[in-house]
């Protein structure tokens, strides 16, 4: 038996919005300490890792780990019916055949109850190493979204490098080239600020298409963290308040 209630149901709506274009089917693992998800695309280019800690929910009860196999398009259709200010409760029995989603309006005048059929999924999992990256950048999530949108008009892959002063994004295409530098700011400006820490320089190249898909998570957080090293997957992390995160890993472009 599991039951998880989130008064701020729109957090869950935003999480599903961030996932639905990247993940077709996935197991949400309901565990006594929270909800996790790991999903990789079939081409093994991107990986999504989600954590929602139990103590971030208003009510959370889960006695043992239960994999909840979900078709993301189906979940997305149902969760769209929740209003932004609704509380959302997830409930499932131990048999794992269905997940109930209950949406309550704040004045308790409306209660919607949906049942989502679950899937028995056998999905590949990877062990995520505790990587130490050469460059760590924290920046406003809207700025990353803008960089992806603007540079996508010019080319398909972005090169990223950083100095202590700025993180630099560059693109080349048939029509020409473009670059955007996001300058680091004083540590005082926390939310809108840009911080760069660097152990050694890195110059990396990634597909803009996937990076742009990650920025669907922008509504979840005002800040985003980028971590990268030469010839390694990049980590793009959006914190979800105090309750967890959504992390995206993107395989680098490699020179032939």
């Amino acid at each position: 038996m599991l039951e998880a209630r989130l008064a701020q149901g729109n957090v869950l709506k935003k999480v599903i919005d961030s996932l639905r274009d990247l993940v077709n089917e996935a197991n949400f693992e309901f565990t006594p300490s929270g909800i996790t998800l790991q999903s990789m695309d079939s081409a093994h280019v991107i990986l999504v890792s989600l954590l929602l800690r139990a103590d971030g929910f208003d009510n959370y009860r889960c006695d043992r780990t239960i994999p909840v196999g979900i078709n993301m398009a189906s979940l997305s259709k149902i969760i769209r019916a929740a209003a932004n200010d609704d509380a959302i409760t997830l409930r499932a029995d131990d048999n794992g055949e269905s997940l109930n989603l209950i949406f309550e309006a704040p004045n308790a005048g409306r209660v919607s109850d949906y049942e989502l059929k679950l899937m028995d999924l056998d999905v590949e999992q990877v062990a995520l190493p505790d990587m130490s990256y050469d460059v760590t950048v924290r920046m406003p999530s809207e700025e990353l979204q803008r960089v992806c949108r603007d540079l996508s008009a010019v080319g398909e892959s972005v090169t990223i490098n950083a100095t202590k002063e700025s993180i630099n994004f560059g693109v080349k295409g048939e029509l020409g080239s473009g670059s955007i530098a996001i300058r680091s700011t004083a540590p005082v400006d926390k939310k809108e600020g840009v911080s760069i820490s660097m152990r050694q320089p890195a110059d990396v190249s990634f597909s803009l298409k996937f990076l742009t898909q990650f920025t669907k998570a922008t509504p979840l957080s005002e800040t985003v963290r980028l971590e990268f090293s030469n010839e390694c997957p990049m980590l793009v992390e959006y914190p979800i308040g105090d309750m967890g995160y959504i992390r995206f890993y993107l395989a680098p472009k490699v020179d032939d």
Partner: peptide, 14 residues
């Protein structure tokens, strides 16, 4: 020229 890398060359499938 470059090609798209794969995550399973970096992360171990379990």
């Amino acid at each position: 020229t470059s090609t798209q890398g794969r995550l399973d060359t970096f992360f171990k499938v379990v």
